Simulated assay, not measured.
Amino acid sequence: MNKNTFYLSPDWLGGVLGRPVGSVEAEQIGTGQIGTCFRLRMDDGDTVLVKLPPANAGEREMMAGAYRAEVRFYQQVASTVAVRTPYCHHAEIDETGDFVIVMEDLAPAVPGEQIAGCTPEEARAAVVNLAGLHGPRWCDPTLTEVDSLSLNGPEEIELLLEMYGPTTELFLDGLGDLVSPEDAATLRACVPAIGPWLLARQERFGLVHGDYRLDNLLFSPTGEVAAVDWQTLSLALPARDLAYVIATSLSVEDRRTHERDLVAAYHQALVGYGVTDYPAELCWEDYAFALLQVPLVATFGCAYSTNRTERGDRMFAAMVARGCTAIRDLDALGLASAQ
């Protein structure tokens, strides 16, 4: 029996859940780009989700750091914050990158739709939930005790800086006419700014999801939001998540109309978690400054995707179009150059 089959067996699952499990039906869900996810239906009708690595050992080794970040989130971080995320029954990883995560099945909640975008009401639920990640451990120095978390310095970002310019060109070449000339110019203008931007404002740090966008958010019929996919968890300026989700989720018109109110709702939620030394106007300025998170994540995510699809290209194009417009609207590059 291979490991993946073992993790889907009634005996192993029963041991994790602490109760007898007579039989299990496994249904693969999602596209499995950097792992494989199964919905397990037990004989009593209950369901859980099991997340496993790909079968290819080389892929596991390449993504081991991302897998470790997610496992550590569920092992050491999730219980200390207030962000809504699936309850984790079990999470473990070995030195090869082989891992297993057993988590709550939040169906009938469904992922957001990145290309279509969301409503201002859904965006508000998302940013209030996000404050539950950032607020409880705002500027907490003990976060560095988690072995997958650290504040990046010049040495840690050196490789990223070497790759960012070529990656931007790969992205533009790959998407072609899906990116407007104006947005292409904005993406290229971000390249020389990204180094100082990455190192700026580290006096305000916290847990950053890193890819907090609609495809990684589950929306329930009652309006609740839960965040999934924690492979990109890091320590950085918290507003990076805030700027990323607002700028990539709303139409340009809705973002221009509602972004002040959304940032204010996020800030109010932070205050509720005890973040009382962070003025609302500074939060707004951090939001505008942090908009460079959109091109940074989108260009790398698209250029080095192992499973390029037409839908994926259109998704990244939509994210970049919205994000670049926000960067121009709020002069995020001017803020970055002023650091």
Rank of each mutant, 00 (worst) to 15 (best):
K51N: 07
N4G: 14
E145C: 09
R60H: 09
L270T: 05
G174W: 02
A123Y: 09
V294R: 03
D331Q: 02
P166Y: 02
A269H: 07
P141K: 08
T142G: 02
D211H: 05
A280M: 01
R240Y: 10
L233Q: 05
M63Q: 08
Q114T: 05
N56Q: 12
S150K: 09
E182G: 14
R84Q: 13
A269Q: 11
A185W: 09
L161G: 04
Q268W: 06
P192M: 07
I115M: 06
D215R: 01
P166T: 06
A326R: 10
A109I: 01
R39G: 02
I101V: 11
L207D: 00
C118M: 05
V50C: 11
V179L: 04
I157V: 13
L292Y: 05
I101P: 00
D177H: 12
L207C: 04
L292F: 06
I327K: 10
D147C: 08
N56I: 13
V71I: 10
Q293W: 06
L8Y: 03
T257Q: 07
G32D: 04
V48R: 01
R204H: 06
T31H: 13
P221L: 05
A247R: 06
A116R: 04
P10T: 11
I157K: 04
A55E: 14
R256I: 06
F6S: 14
A318S: 07
T248V: 06
E61C: 02
A321K: 15
G301C: 12
Q339G: 08
G132T: 12
L199F: 09
T309P: 06
V191R: 03
R68Y: 02
R260I: 15
